[in-house]
């Protein structure tokens, strides 16, 4: 098997007495959709925080494309191709949808120590940003102020921005959270279209989405990975059913 694109090795993180991540190992291969599921409080958010660099693990190592990135700050990881979307959208509310994406394109192109030329008249920049809006179905809303977009549209914009960084892997933190049935379907279709092109680590509560999209599923309980395998195997795993799926369909 080829070297995985992202690899977390034996991550440990404690807050006070609570062990939020307990010797977690996990990998995502090129083009794969790997879902990370687990009940509330299982430590999914803490795990994402460590992968993206907002939280420093107490022990363990994170590799991306074969290199140790454990000590890199988040922006550097992003520039190496590790993008993320936020569970609670973190958009630039005063800017338009297009501005939000254009800024990500601008950041990808290198430093922004350019003090003179007007961004809004930079046709190339705007075209590149527009392409990502079209890809996520937001083209019609390009000039809307972000604060005026609906929750579902903001989630799509999150994705458009992540795509604009030209990632090799996206950490998607609950992209379906708070979406209605139609919006969930649209988002699922969107992610399916991206599948194979960009690797994804998908943190998601919606089991239907997980089983529809994922190549592999890792189940996290109390900071530990209790099972990892293809969706069908996970669905039938006795330990998982007991720990997690048990309540609904047992």
């Amino acid at each position: 098997m080829a070297t995985p694109l992202l690899r977390a090795i034996d991550l440990v993180k404690s807050f006070g007495g609570l062990r939020a991540t307990d010797h977690l190992s996990l990998d995502v291969t090129e083009g794969e959709v790997h879902a990370l599921i687990g009940p509330n409080g299982a430590g999914k958010t803490t795990a994402v925080g460590q992968l993206i660099g907002e939280i420093r693990p107490d022990a363990g190592q994170i590799e991306f494309a074969g290199e140790d990135i454990s000590r890199l700050p988040p922006p550097t990881r992003v520039r190496r191709g590790l993008a993320r979307s936020f569970q609670i959208s973190q958009l630039l509310q005063d800017y338009t949808a297009l501005d939000n994406v254009a800024l990500a394109v601008q950041a990808r192109e290198g430093h922004s120590f350019r003090f003179w030329g007007a961004v809004r008249r930079d046709a190339r920049l705007r075209r590149a940003a527009m392409a990502h809006l079209e890809e996520t179905g937001l083209a019609a809303l390009a000039d809307q102020r972000t604060a005026d977009l609906s929750h579902g549209q903001q989630k799509q914009l999150e994705l458009a921005i992540a795509l604009a960084t030209k990632p090799r892997l996206m950490l998607l933190d609950e992209p379906m959270a708070g979406l209605g049935p139609t919006e969930t379907q649209a988002m699922t279709a969107l992610l399916r279209a991206l599948k194979g092109r960009i690797a994804m680590l998908l943190i998601e509560h919606d089991m239907e989405t997980v089983f529809a999209l994922a190549d592999r599923v890792t189940v996290l309980v109390s900071g530990r990975s209790i099972a990892c395998g293809p969706p069908a195997a996970i669905r039938d795993d006795a330990a998982v059913r007991q720990a997690y799926l048990g309540d609904g369909d047992a």
Binding site: I52, E54, P73, P74, P75, T76, V78, R79, A83, R84, F86, Q90, L91, L92, Q93, D94, Y95, L103, A104, A107, R108, I161, A162, A164, T165
Partner: peptide, 14 residues
């Protein structure tokens, strides 16, 4: 302006 609005977002675009 992006930094003013949301520094975390800026980190997330690199």
């Amino acid at each position: 302006g992006g930094i003013r609005q949301n520094e975390r977002r800026m980190a997330a675009i690199g």
